[in-house]
Simulated assay, not measured.
Amino acid sequence: MALKKTTVMVDEEDLALIKEAAAREGRSESEYFREAFHLAALRTRRWGDDWDIPSMDFGGPVSAEEIDRAVSDGVADTE
């Protein structure tokens, strides 16, 4: 991955928190900023195609109680 140097203005309190975390965790401040910048870049992505998300037909409306029961049963099965 090629890196490009840039200058960014940040809130002093945010910078202080990053400096503290970097010292505490033994990471560089730059690593925190690259990670934050990457997350911000990911949030800007847009997909042009529709997502192929399957839909399910339960034959009618499903109540909140039925959902709660199904979730409870599913959790009980994994324990």
Results as ranks from 00 to 15, higher is better:
D52E: 09
R24M: 03
G60R: 11
W47C: 06
L15H: 13
L42P: 01
G48E: 15
L42F: 11
Y32K: 01
F37L: 15
A23V: 05
I53G: 02
A36L: 09
H38R: 15
S55W: 03
I18M: 05
L42W: 07
T7P: 00
M56R: 09
V10D: 04
P54H: 04
F37D: 02
S30P: 00
E65M: 07
A41W: 08
E29M: 14
K4V: 12
I67N: 08
D73H: 06
T44R: 08
M9P: 03
I67W: 10
F33P: 00
M56T: 10
M56F: 14
F58I: 06
G26P: 00
K5Q: 12
R43P: 00
E65L: 12
I53Y: 07
E13K: 11
K5M: 12
I67P: 00
Y32V: 02
E66T: 09
I18H: 00
A41P: 00
D57R: 06
A23F: 07
D50L: 10
R69L: 09
A40G: 08
V8H: 02
F58R: 11
G48Y: 06
A40Y: 09
D50T: 13
I18D: 00
F33Q: 01
L42Q: 15
A22V: 01
S30W: 01
M56W: 13
P61D: 14
E13Y: 03
L42G: 08
R43S: 14
R34E: 05
A70R: 06
G59R: 05
R24G: 02
D57Q: 07
I18N: 00
A64C: 05
R34A: 02
S30R: 07
L15N: 14
D68T: 03
G60D: 07
V8M: 13
D52L: 10
I18Q: 00
V10H: 04
E12L: 09
A22R: 01
S30C: 02
H38G: 10
S55F: 04
L42I: 10
E66F: 04
E31F: 11
R46S: 08
E35N: 10
W47K: 11
M9A: 12
G26E: 03
H38V: 11
S55E: 14
Y32C: 01
Y32H: 06
F37C: 11
G74C: 03
R34D: 02
D57A: 08
L3R: 12
T78D: 04
D50Q: 13
D11E: 14
A76Y: 04
A22K: 01
G60T: 07
D50S: 11
L17P: 00
V71Q: 05
D50P: 04
L17M: 09
A23C: 04
E79L: 15
R34M: 07
T44H: 02
D52K: 09
E35P: 00
G59A: 05
L15D: 12
K19V: 11
I53N: 06
E31W: 15
D52F: 03
L39Y: 13
T6A: 13
E35G: 05
V75Y: 07
D73W: 01
G59F: 02
L15G: 02
V75E: 08
R46T: 10
E20K: 13
S30M: 07
A41S: 07
